[in-house]
């Protein structure tokens, strides 16, 4: 990535909160800070992999960017325009350049609509993208683009396999010619062969159309495969971020190290045995996060300072940004 390009997406100090309601008192008794100060950039044509603890706020980050959740504080700059303060009409225009692909392709496709209807629906809402008399040829082109048979445009979602349905979801996301596609666990439900097809397709689309991705996944091999940059989340915050190469080779935050050490190896017999780092203790509630460092209650390195001083996400050890007072190199974690 050349440094002179202005980022396509700049997320700054993003906060998203959910009210915590008491069933007994029937009123709001607090707030869940699902996202508590997250910042990152995605350049045009770049891919940021977002990984981390389940419940750490990855989907909420994604949903807030596309406007499905309300941003409580911070800014979301898309090509320099702040999505959190755009007037509704302009927002609609900008929004279409940001599309999302979901984990469950079936649940997100209308079962009563044909593939053609699913794709053209977006053009009905945004009539300036494709003129009506071009619908049919454009649908064919899109289906071909994602590796589906264009003659199948009149079929319904249930007539396709899981991998093919995921391709329909991708075709629908591409219909509005987005610049950024957010993939939230988009390949997790697929078998590894179909997953390989879809990952190859995403890589091709990135090359041919210059798409950028925010790629959320739990499978770290997949994230390593597709990402330029990787950010690791824990309890509403990014705790470490680096280029794909550096993050996997030289993770310095204890949480990242634990995460990488737990990656299951499909051929464990071929390598010397690893000792996964077990993180003990309970994940704290995002409604009541620990003082100081949010990971300290489960960290084997925690000292007094960790409870009083929130570690900044800044370059450590002459490497990449990590939010840990005791960042340390550890290279033997990833299998191999």
């Amino acid at each position: 990535m050349p440094p002179e390009t202005t980022p396509l997406l700049q997320v700054r100090d993003l906060h998203t909160t959910f009210p915590l309601r008491s069933a007994l008192l029937r009123r709001t008794v607090g707030h869940v800070q699902a996202v508590a100060g997250v910042s990152f950039d995605i350049p045009a044509g770049g891919t940021l992999g977002l990984v981390g603890e389940s419940g750490s706020g990855k989907s909420t980050v994604a949903r807030t960017i596309v406007g499905l959740e309300k941003c409580a504080a911070g800014s979301i700059l898309f090509e320099g325009e702040d999505l959190t303060s755009l007037p509704p009409a302009r927002m609609r225009q900008v929004r279409r350049q940001l599309q999302m692909i979901f984990q469950d392709p079936y649940a997100s496709l209308n079962p009563r609509a044909t593939v053609e209807q699913i794709i053209t629906e977006a053009w009905e809402i945004h009539p300036d993208v494709v003129p009506r008399d071009r619908f049919k040829p454009e649908v064919r082109e899109l289906l071909e683009r994602v590796g589906l048979n264009p003659d199948h445009a009149a079929r319904y979602p249930h007539q396709f396999s899981g991998g093919q349905r995921q391709r329909i979801g991708i075709a629908r996301a591409l219909a509005l010619r987005p610049k950024l596609v957010i993939c939230d666990e988009a390949v997790s439900a697929l078998d590894v062969s179909v997953q390989a097809q879809v990952l190859n397709l995403l890589a091709e689309l990135r090359e041919d159309l210059g798409l950028a991705y925010l790629f959320i996944a739990h499978d770290l091999s997949v994230v390593r495969h597709i990402s330029d940059q990787v950010a690791v989340m824990y309890l509403g915050r990014i705790v470490e971020t680096a280029s794909q190469q550096e993050l996997f080779a030289e993770p310095v935050h204890p949480y990242t190290q634990a995460l990488l050490s737990a990656v299951p190896d499909p051929l464990p017999w071929a390598r010397p045995p690893r000792t996964p780092i077990i993180i003990g203790g309970d994940v704290p509630s995002p409604a009541d996060p620990p003082s100081g460092c949010r990971f300290r209650t489960r960290c084997w390195k925690a000292q007094d300072v960790c409870a009083t001083e929130d570690p900044a996400l800044e370059p450590r050890l002459g490497l990449h940004p990590a939010a840990c007072h005791f960042a340390e190199r550890r290279t033997e974690l990833v299998v191999g």
Binding site: G52, H218, L259, A262, V263, P264, P276
Partner: peptide, 8 residues
């Protein structure tokens, strides 16, 4: 749907 540490 789980991260690798919770999965473990």
């Amino acid at each position: 749907a789980l991260d690798v540490t919770v999965q473990a």
